[in-house]
Design a protein around this nucleic acid. Structure first.
Lengths: 240, 240
DNA sequence: CTTGCAGGATTGTTGAACAATCTCTAGGCT
DNA sequence: AGCCTAGAGATTGTTCAACAATCCTGCAAG
């Protein structure tokens, strides 16, 4: 068969196919149920403090209690649910201490990723930045359409893609968890516009700094960015 | 009843009791099974690549399949097991890429914790460092007794307690997971002495720097420490 | 050497059942 | 009235047995 230069291309294709397959045969029932619940929580249909009844959800989600409990476990370890023994599962209510904790981790991880990009600049193709630009433009479009929750998710995805530049599966997992918890916090804040609007512009600026390969400057910018965001959420939190 | 000065002591006692109760009250069956499996994995009885049969383990652990599967889920999210749909659960086989990934995160988190201590030095009582000293001495004692796996766990605990100084529940959780995966890596290395011996001394030195409140120096030392450890593991890994 | 096809084994999911625990209400006591 | 106690009812924790879906193995055919 054909070998040589075509081989690496073939391997790359095999990887993408493998990824697609892995995405398709998810543990179906349990993970499907978890997906639905995850959306309900992150979109606010299940507010912090709400209890999730087992028998009720078995009927709604059309899964058995055992499968539902496996879904609960999945979400528990994402921080989107908490178990209270013999009392049930609840959507956690985060407080100011959690805000500080979450943002501390975000700063550490994200700033390190950006700073670390300088070391591997040569091997990093410009195309890796494309998802970031897509997110920025998605946020701008949603803002024009006055759809602020959509702006929020686009901004979130921007940061997920930013972390993704590090090619670290564990960082990706941690970030997914952190951002999910962050969404939980957003629901106690009434005005999504003030919450998300300032960061559209900041994300674009960050993207442009990355594109210009000014990594140290980008890292400093991002650090200040996250401090600003933390202060905003804390303020909204205290005055609720 | 007695009030005043004795009250805070009583409250402290209540907290420790509450913690003990919470530890005993665990979802018993599932978490107990998970505990046994966790030990088997981290101690090497279940080597990387091993498959865990459900029916076999239900008999050994004397729990139902559903409960066992919940235990599997728990360990899956600690990174100690991986699920392959319709094929079963396996002890993951980590490779060099995982070593690099794990150590990158360790460096980021631990170095940041140490550096961050400078900001809150005044509010940090000296007693918070005691667990670290205990770990160092435990490692030294185990080394004298030629019990190198014990040295390894003591060293691990040193780093767990180090992260604990940050008072961040999420960092604690992440570190627990990272160190569990690190143990997985240790099992592919034949000589535990060479693996753990150098770090007894380094941990003591790190402790002394912290005690002297030389946080920046400690952070730099820790960074170099972790780079050294990473290189050692990578070398042992490649020559196996 | 590859392809296709049973057959057996293992996992995925379900439903029902029982035990353990919590919550809430009612009643008795000081 | 206020507080403690007991018990009923509801919910969760755990087990079991069964069936469906999928994977692995070995073998036969091309």
């Amino acid at each position: 068969m054909s070998t040589g230069g075509a081989e690496t291309e073939r391997q790359a294709w095999l990887r993408t196919v493998a990824a697609d397959v892995a995405r398709l045969d998810r543990s179906s029932s349990a993970e499907r149920a978890a997906d639905i619940l995850r959306r309900s929580i992150t979109e606010g249909a299940l507010p912090p403090g709400a209890q999730l009844s087992e028998i009720e959800l078995t009927e709604v989600l059309e899964v058995s209690r055992n499968t539902l409990r496996e879904a609960f476990r999945l979400l528990t370890h994402e921080g989107l649910l908490v178990y209270k023994l013999h009392r049930g599962v609840f959507v956690p209510e985060l407080d100011e201490h959690d805000v500080i904790d979450l943002y501390r981790l975000r700063r550490v991880l994200e700033v390190d990723v950006v700073r670390g990009l300088a070391d591997r600049d040569p091997e990093l193709p410009a195309s890796r930045l494309e998802p970031l630009l897509d997110d920025v433009e998605a946020a701008e479009a949603a803002a024009r359409a006055d759809r602020w929750p959509v702006v929020g998710t686009a901004n979130m995805r921007f940061h997920e893609h930013l972390i993704g530049l590090a090619d670290s599966s564990r960082m990706d997992a941690m970030t997914g968890r952190l951002l999910a918890e962050l969404r939980l916090l957003f629901h106690v804040i009434a005005t999504p516009r003030e919450l998300h609007e300032p960061y559209i512009e900041r994300n674009r600026r960050l993207f442009e700094l990355l594109e210009a390969r000014k990594y140290d400057e980008a890292a400093a910018d991002l650090n200040e960015y996250l401090l600003h965001s933390e202060r905003a959420i804390l303020a909204a939190f205290r005055s609720r």
